[in-house]
């Protein structure tokens, strides 16, 4: 399996996303914003459509769109006093509507866009992998350096704000990291399943972990394990890789629920 160049690239890109997605998802789940990945996925969809239409890198345009969407959600949540899910719904629908309009205004777009909706990890190129690795490591390094700050802002937002912690800045970092993760995960599991890789490993880990730190580390292990196992199963059983990866992650969640009983 690993003699094949496309499988080696798939494992490399998948491993990075498998670690990054739960690491970022951890902070979203703890803030009860588990579904933000879905919302940003829809915004990224508009970005992919725009990228294909304008003949620029769809991943980079999707990244820019998702970052913008994430910042808008965060501003609406903290400034305008809109409830978190209403802010999310607004960005969610604008994204999907814009994507539909852009797709229908182009020609020959439809086949291409499916790669991003459902993932196409077996077609990632060498330059795709470099982009995923570079940005993925950047994202993980950011979490490593700001770990205590991000945890404080999530665990007790108001108490931290009163103490003078730059909570708004830390929330913005999480928003941008979420956007980055969505854009990088599109090719691996697809826009429709991006959020699953951010949420399922975290909820699985939180059932068996004994601290925040162990939850984070376990979720990263479950994430990368799901990608490796999912890709392997997909290769031998000739299944869709994105869906198989997420089903393995869902299996991990079910396993931790029954292990706890």
């Amino acid at each position: 399996m690993l003699d094949l160049e496309f499988m080696r690239l798939a494992f490399a890109a998948g491993a990075v996303v498998g670690v990054l997605a739960p690491a970022v998802g951890f902070f979203l789940v703890e803030r009860r914003q588990a579904l933000i990945g879905d919302g940003l996925g829809h915004v990224a969809f508009a970005g992919v459509a725009a990228g294909i239409l304008l003949d620029v890198s769809p991943v980079l345009v999707a990244l820019a769109f998702a970052v913008l969407g994430a910042i808008v959600v965060e501003l609406l949540r903290s400034r305008a006093g809109a409830a978190g899910d209403q802010a999310l719904a607004l960005v969610f629908y604008v994204g999907i509507a814009l994507g539909v309009v852009l797709v229908s205004s182009g020609s020959g777009l439809d086949a291409n866009i499916l790669q991003y909706l459902f993932g196409s990890i077996l077609t990632v190129t060498r330059s795709d992998v470099w982009l995923v690795v570079a940005l993925g490591i950047g994202g993980l390094a950011t979490i490593g350096v700001l770990y205590r700050g991000l945890v404080g802002a999530v665990v007790d937002e108001e108490g931290s704000r009163v103490a003078g912690v730059p909570v708004d800045g830390l929330n913005a970092v999480v928003a941008v990291l979420a956007a980055l993760t969505v854009a990088l995960s599109m090719r691996v599991v697809g826009i429709l399943l991006v959020a699953a890789l951010m949420v399922l490993p975290v909820t699985a880990a939180s059932r068996i972990a004994w601290s925040l730190r162990s939850t984070l580390l376990l979720s990263m292990a479950i994430g990368v394990g799901s990608v490796v196992a999912g890709l392997t199963i997909a290769y031998y059983a000739d299944l869709a890789p994105g869906g198989t990866i997420v089903l393995v992650a869902a299996g991990a969640y079910v396993a931790t629920v029954s292990a706890k009983r």
Partner: peptide
């Protein structure tokens, strides 16, 4: 009612 984030265990 100190809001203690989500469901993950915190020591």
């Amino acid at each position: 009612r100190a809001r203690l984030g989500g469901d993950a265990p915190v020591t």
